[in-house]
Design a protein around this nucleic acid. Structure first.
Lengths: 338, 338
DNA sequence: TTGTATGCGTTATCAA
DNA sequence: TTGATAACGCATACAA
């Protein structure tokens, strides 16, 4: 039961293939067709359940309406960071009738494999997001130089010629810190893993005239953004007796760990210590106290990247963009949110 | 800067196109090639950065190595249900060098659109998951009848000829209920939205010789699986003074809502009331008490569906499968977990 | 050991 | 108003 092609329609309608093609595409050009014949052709096409063969069109026209999406996942499970990004990309793609080939990669090898297939000509371009593969910078740049439209969603651009949608991580760190300052905290501790955000914290502390003392800092190290990092850090801060009244966490998971541990030890959040998370994960609403957090807006990033891609594809000159983080005030920082 | 084709290599190596094709594919058949010439060809291919044109191959061979994945999202944000399913599908796909065209759909129209393009011949088949589109049953069945391999991941098969990877929802409801029975609960309330799970609850209660009274039931209705449904239900159970000592929730969000509300009202979980969630979302670990939950194993479902698809594609006869849910005991049910 | 010819399904150019 | 033909890039049966 092979597929129905223009040829089959042509035969059953007793006309030429090219005429069928013209009629079905409403692309008659200079030529005209008698209405009855056109109808007959369309009817046959309908009857035989004709569908275009995308491969043939791609071969013929050199375009595919397929965009490769390569994402190196990041964020703890439940953060929703990647899911929102994909959702953003995908919503715009659908509205523009573009198909998405989605690839989750982890290693450089996997990434490279996709890049190859990118130039294998089954996609019109790529949107690359998540953790950057800096080692593949030149491979990616080469694809771009060969004319493949590429947009990235990383913290910073990987190449001058490849527009990037990023978010100002330093601003995120600063925003959280500033919020706690405004809430009246003066001894603000910081669990950090992301360097830029740490810079943001440091700068904000400086601007507020507050001291950044080593005993207020905890490097998450291999615990990264995990719940465990939060528990461990909170324990450390308590052990150090550093008299903290606020903690800027580097993830919502860390914040959850901090909050649970502090409360277990009889310390009240937010009355005694105010806490902020990062990423605005859905579960921020469920923890008690609910977690004040900062959205990285990966959904917006995905949408914007797709728009930029489309612009780029149609020959436009595209500039990179930087998104502004957004603060969601909830109970854990003692704000008036929720 | 057009793409490099076999022709370009043939010209630059001064041989025929077909020979280049044979050499590059190591598909010499009966014919032999002198080693030097083969080397020369390969060198030229390398030098010119030759990449196959996937569209041409698809056209020629009638296969694409592309599988359409259509998912109608379900589960509250943060449940990870869909993400895990995609992850499962995608991990197997990658290991088999298959590309995935991922589509998130909501409406029947969107779904139908994809089905069209499915038969447009740009994919070798489809894996359909998430909420079923029963109205499109026949459209999907038609695709299958036309020879397109299709596997679904729904609660139950939509068509006899389309193998499904499901999970026994009734078993899930039963498992949660049984667990609370084993924990010593005798007045077990149920917040329900999913009918099958509700049946499981009812049956398990019956088998345990426990009464299922209307005052122990709360239909989530339009609140579905939300946190709000949990809060509202818990409030209702309290108002009814129905003397409950356990609550089987229909989602982890509901469970979080229940737990937070009960604790606000001074009721201890799990000492006074034991609670179970559903879906085993990542945040189950973060709530205090942590939430006992049941995994639907959507990651496994995704992996299995992909395996079945591949089997089906290669002509094998494939049977549907039913996964067993898995209980994760944590604090909220007073188990010895965590 | 190498090359020629054909066709996959489509569209565009040109001829009738 | 309609049709024949070439071309997209590739793989294969067959000829040399």
């Amino acid at each position: 039961m092979s597929r129905v092609s223009l040829k089959d329609i042509a035969q059953s309608a007793d006309v030429s293939i090219s005429l069928v093609s013209k009629v079905l595409n409403n692309r008659l050009g200079t030529t005209g067709v008698s209405p009855e014949l056109a109808d007959k052709i369309r009817q046959q096409a309908e009857k035989l359940h004709y569908r275009q063969n995308a491969s043939a069109i791609a071969l013929r026209q050199g375009r595919h309406d397929v965009i490769g999406v390569i994402i190196h996942r990041y964020g703890e499970p439940g953060s929703g960071l990647v899911e929102n990004m994909v959702e953003g990309i995908s919503s715009i793609a659908r509205s523009r009738q573009k198909k998405l080939i989605l690839n989750f990669v982890e290693t450089d090898e996997e990434f490279l494999e996709i890049c190859k297939s990118a130039h294998q000509g089954n996609m019109d371009g790529m949107i690359i997001g998540g953790l950057p593969h800096m080692k593949l910078k030149s491979s990616i740049a080469r694809l771009r130089e060969n004319g493949l439209p590429i947009v990235t969603i990383h913290d910073r651009p990987i190449h001058a010629e490849i527009p990037n949608v990023g978010i100002d991580q330093a601003a995120i760190g600063g925003l959280a810190t500033l919020h706690l300052v405004e809430q009246g905290c003066t001894r603000i501790a910081h669990i950090f893993h992301n360097e830029k955000r740490h810079d943001g914290y440091t700068d904000a502390m400086g601007e507020a005239g507050l001291a950044v003392e080593p005993e207020l800092l905890f490097n998450a190290g291999t615990m990264r953004y995990s719940y465990l990092a939060g528990e461990t850090a909170a324990t450390a801060f308590l052990d150090r007796k550093c008299g903290f009244d606020g903690i800027v966490c580097d993830s919502d998971q860390q914040a959850a760990g901090v909050i649970n541990l502090l409360q277990e030890r009889g310390i009240r959040v937010p009355q005694d210590v105010k806490v902020t998370g990062m990423d605005n994960a859905p579960f921020c609403e469920y923890i008690r106290p609910s977690i004040t957090s900062i959205s990285q807006k990966t959904r917006n990033a995905g949408e914007l990247a797709m728009h930029m891609f489309l612009e780029m594809e149609s020959g436009g000159r595209v500039e990179g963009a930087m998104l502004e983080p957004e603060l969601f005030v909830r109970q854990s920082s003692g704000g008036n949110g929720e």
